[in-house]
């Protein structure tokens, strides 16, 4: 299935999945209206040894790519959770059309003693807060994707 050239079916975690969300975000007027967002955000799924870098620039998500853990450690901050937790998050978004009150990025972050958003730099970690609505919107848009989860 494709829609406007965007793959709407993708497995998580994969570059295709992030690429699909990126396309959705970049063609979404509402996302622009949240405001500028400048950050390099890492994604870690450690139990699958999967690492990604998402680059947000001005009013768009300019790049997504698979990466190494080392590179992700140098991002402004990264989101880290075991695969099952990611699955829970994405499934919840899919089921509700967006994250429900118990699956917002902030809530997930709070519930993990180590935090969902992590960084080696206390200043850069705050970008997670500064652009919180944009990141939330990014993941909420994944509700428009048929996500599959490989075993």
């Amino acid at each position: 299935m494709t829609q406007g050239g965007v793959k709407t079916r993708a497995s998580f975690p994969s570059t295709e999945w992030f690429e699909a969300v990126r396309s959705l975000v970049n063609s979404d007027e509402q996302y622009r209206r949240i405001g500028t967002c400048d950050a390099v955000v890492g994604v870690k799924v450690p139990d699958r040894q999967k690492y990604y870098l998402l680059t947000f620039e001005a009013f768009e998500c300019s790049e997504v790519k698979e990466s190494t853990e080392q590179e992700v450690d140098n991002a402004d901050f990264w989101l880290e959770a075991p695969f099952e937790k990611w699955k829970e998050l994405i499934t919840n978004v899919k089921d509700n059309g967006k994250a429900d009150l118990h699956h917002t990025l902030n809530t997930i972050d709070l519930e993990d003693p180590q935090g969902f958003a992590r960084s080696r730099d206390g200043y850069k970690r705050d970008l997670f807060y500064r652009f919180n609505q944009s990141f939330q919107y990014f993941f909420d848009l994944s509700s428009k994707i048929e996500t599959t989860f490989p075993n």
Binding site: E88, H102, T107, I108, L110, E111
Partner: peptide, 8 residues
Amino acid sequence: MAISPDVL
């Protein structure tokens, strides 16, 4: 999801 009771 919730904060783990152990931690608390």
